[in-house]
Simulated scan of single mutants.
Amino acid sequence: MSTAAVIPPLFQGLFDDAAVFPPGNLPVADAVPAHRAHRAAWYADAVGPLLCGAGRLDELAAAARRPGPAAAQDPAPALRVGLVLPGGSPELGPALAAAAPFEVAGVELATRDAREAVAALDLLLPADVPAAVELPRELLRGDGLDEVLDVLLDSPYRAKFRTGGVVAGAFPDERELAGLLTGCARRGLPYKCTAGLHHAVRHTDAATGFEHHGFLNVLLAAQETDPAAAAEVLAERDGEALAKAVRALTDRQTTVIRNSFTAFGTCSIAEPLDDLAALGLLSPDPTPQEDR
């Protein structure tokens, strides 16, 4: 079965499965079979690895060993896992060891010192495992942003930006996020995002009042090198206007965008897919197709 024709290149591998993180908080024992279902579904090409914090890898290993109903006939492949290390470099070695039962698809390392994080990753990370480095937002303002991005540019690692959370202050505004994205775009530095992006279009959450960025806004802003232009794209709340801009993208623009904005963590896989379908950007076809 091929899903390449079902999932457009702009969205392939875009949605990292952050089901166990807030606000979803799905129990690990439930997240593992749910992730395996995602990986077997018609939309599998849109789904990245299952993200797991360093402190929950034992839970994850136990859940992964739990047999499913068809395990005896068709054993599940090793889980593709992204390691999220909020405790920084001291967690890296133990987490890699604890992740031995899994296929490690990436590492996301939080730090207050980009150079120290790069050094630790250089020392301990297998060469075939990608990594992203996340710094607190207060260190990414003014000259601090250029310094951090230049450190990462001289490394094989991506940046990671937090675009939301469980409090209003966790959401950067359009100008702040535009500065981050265009700083990377001017350098050709890839990045991933996390939190607050599970809907396609910028909106105000009716329950919390939080101002959420839309992942379509971020995708389209990823090709901009001018902060004012990027901020304008990030501020757009008209889903049809964003969908029209997506349809107008050339193959080259799509490549540029996804070489920059590589993925984001979402606690829901269904919501972004539903939004794309509602905007006419995704046409689900669950019928198996022969590879051509």
Rank of each mutant, 00 (worst) to 15 (best):
H198Y: 03
A29S: 14
D74S: 12
R258N: 04
L26K: 13
A119F: 02
G48P: 02
D16H: 06
P49L: 00
A54S: 15
G169H: 12
A207N: 07
E211P: 05
S155F: 03
P288Q: 04
A72W: 14
D150L: 12
G13I: 07
A131W: 14
R292L: 13
V32E: 01
L125E: 02
H199Y: 13
D154R: 15
Y157C: 01
A64C: 13
A98K: 09
P8A: 13
L181V: 15
D150K: 02
A100V: 08
L242N: 05
A207C: 03
A231K: 01
A19L: 03
D30Q: 15
A185M: 03
G88K: 02
E103G: 09
S283K: 14
A206V: 14
Y157G: 03
A72F: 08
L216F: 05
C193L: 08
D226P: 15
G183M: 09
A72E: 13
D285L: 01
L83D: 12
G68W: 12
F161Y: 13
R36Y: 05
E211V: 09
A63S: 07
V201E: 08
T208C: 01
V104Q: 12
A62P: 14
E59I: 03
L50N: 01
W42Y: 11
D143P: 15
A110I: 11
P126H: 06
A105E: 13
N259T: 10
F171W: 01
T266N: 10
R137K: 15
A200T: 04
A243G: 01
V118G: 12
G196R: 05
